[in-house]
């Protein structure tokens, strides 16, 4: 599944957003359901996540890896997680650009989903993925505003 799109954060310049995005404390607050990021290496974290979407819930264990950092314009983020209800593996490029005092974040990535969520969640995968992204940026925006 290809996921592309963009989000605008009004109150913060790319330099600040870039810093926030690379801060594990901020990331763990912004990722919906994230119960903590534990540093395991240079730009590598172990993640525990409990995703709750409506009546659906599932726990995931996984990793987050950041690479190709070109502050403050872009970096790559790779996320892997697996749990009883399936697994998710994704990698994408995030590009930041200043715009009217705010930041435009463009993302473009490829997500692979397997297990139960792939075989029975087809109808809602896309809508759910985009909802998680929306929530992520809403919270990032809140963080940036503080």
């Amino acid at each position: 599944m290809r996921i592309t799109g963009s989000a605008r954060i009004a109150a913060a310049a790319p330099e600040q957003i870039f810093r926030l995005l690379l801060d594990p404390a901020v990331l763990s607050k912004c990722l919906p359901g994230c119960e903590g990021l534990e540093r395991t290496g240079e730009d590598e974290y172990r993640m525990r996540m409990k995703a709750v979407i409506g009546a659906v819930s599932g726990a995931f264990d996984g990793t987050v890896r950041l690479s190709d950092q070109k502050a403050p314009q872009s970096f790559r983020m790779a996320v892997e997680g697996s749990g009883r209800i399936g697994f998710v593996k994704g990698e994408g490029l995030l590009k930041l650009a200043g715009q009217d005092g705010g930041t435009e974040i463009a993302y473009d990535g490829e997500v692979q989903v397997g297990g139960m969520i792939a075989s029975v969640g087809q109808r809602l995968l896309d809508a759910t993925a985009r909802m998680i992204i929306r929530r992520f940026f809403t919270r990032l925006s809140e963080e940036a505003g503080q």
């Binding site: 009546a55 659906v56 819930s57 009883r84 209800i85 139960m116 969520i117 029975v120 969640g121």
Partner: peptide
């Protein structure tokens, strides 16, 4: 109609 199928698939576990 929504909750029971999710529970049967163990996607929901109240």
């Amino acid at each position: 109609m929504s909750l029971i199928p999710l529970m049967k698939l163990r996607l929901a576990a109240p």
